[in-house]
Amino acid sequence: MPIDEATARTAAPRTREISWEPEDVQLYHLAIGAGVPATDPGELRYTLESDLHVLPSFATVAGGGEPGVIRALSMPGVDVDLARVLHGGQTLTVHRPLPVRGAATATDRITAVHDKGEAAVLVLRTEAADTEGPLWSEEARIFVRGAGGWGGDRGPSARTAPPAGAPDDTAGRPVRTVERPVREDQALLYRLTGDRNPLHADPAFARAAGFDRPVLHGLCTYGLTLKAVVDTLLDGDVTRVRSYATRFVSVVHPGETLRVRMWPRDGAVRVAVSAVERDDAPVLADTIVEHS
Score class of each variant (00 low, 15 high):
R207E: 09
D202F: 09
T177L: 05
F211N: 02
V61Y: 01
T221M: 04
V36M: 11
R9G: 00
A31I: 02
D266G: 06
W136N: 06
T105G: 07
H29T: 06
A147F: 10
G64H: 05
L82W: 08
S157V: 12
D168C: 15
G267N: 09
G65P: 03
T239V: 05
T246G: 06
R96K: 10
A275F: 02
A275T: 15
T239I: 03
E290P: 00
P56S: 07
E118M: 11
V175E: 08
L86I: 10
G172Q: 04
D195G: 08
F248N: 00
Y28R: 06
E139G: 05
R14V: 15
P163R: 11
E179T: 15
D235E: 15
A161N: 06
E184Y: 04
E21C: 04
R109C: 02
A38F: 15
T126N: 09
V175C: 09
Y46P: 03
V175Q: 08
A201N: 08
W263M: 06
D24I: 03
P22I: 09
L27H: 02
P2L: 12
F143P: 00
G236C: 02
R71P: 10
P99D: 03
L98T: 05
L199Y: 07
F143I: 01
V283N: 00
D202S: 10
E66M: 14
H200W: 10
A104W: 03
V121G: 01
L92M: 13
L135T: 06
P37A: 14
E23S: 09
T126R: 14
P41V: 03
G88Y: 06
A140M: 09
P162G: 14
I142S: 00
E49P: 01
D279W: 00
A112W: 08
V249C: 12
V85L: 03
K116E: 09
V54M: 04
F205H: 03
P254C: 13
N197C: 13
F248V: 05
Y244D: 07
I18T: 07
F248K: 01
R16C: 00
A285R: 15
W136E: 03
G88T: 13
V230L: 04
E49N: 11
A228D: 02
P174G: 11
D40K: 13
V215D: 03
R259D: 05
A204L: 12
V69N: 00
G236E: 01
A104V: 09
T15P: 01
I18W: 10
L124R: 01
A8H: 08
R240K: 15
E5F: 12
R9Y: 02
P198E: 14
D108T: 13
E23N: 08
G133P: 01
H217N: 11
G149N: 13
R14T: 13
E256P: 07
L199K: 05
A12S: 13
V283I: 10
G117I: 10
R125L: 09
H217T: 11
P181M: 09
A140G: 09
R176L: 12
R125V: 14
R213M: 11
D130T: 05
E23F: 05
V260W: 01
W150T: 14
A8P: 09
V271W: 00
I32H: 02
G151S: 12
G155A: 08
A281L: 14
A171V: 11
A129V: 07
R16Y: 04
D168V: 14
V100C: 05
E5W: 12
T246C: 15
A34M: 10
A38P: 07
V252T: 14
R9F: 02
R9T: 03
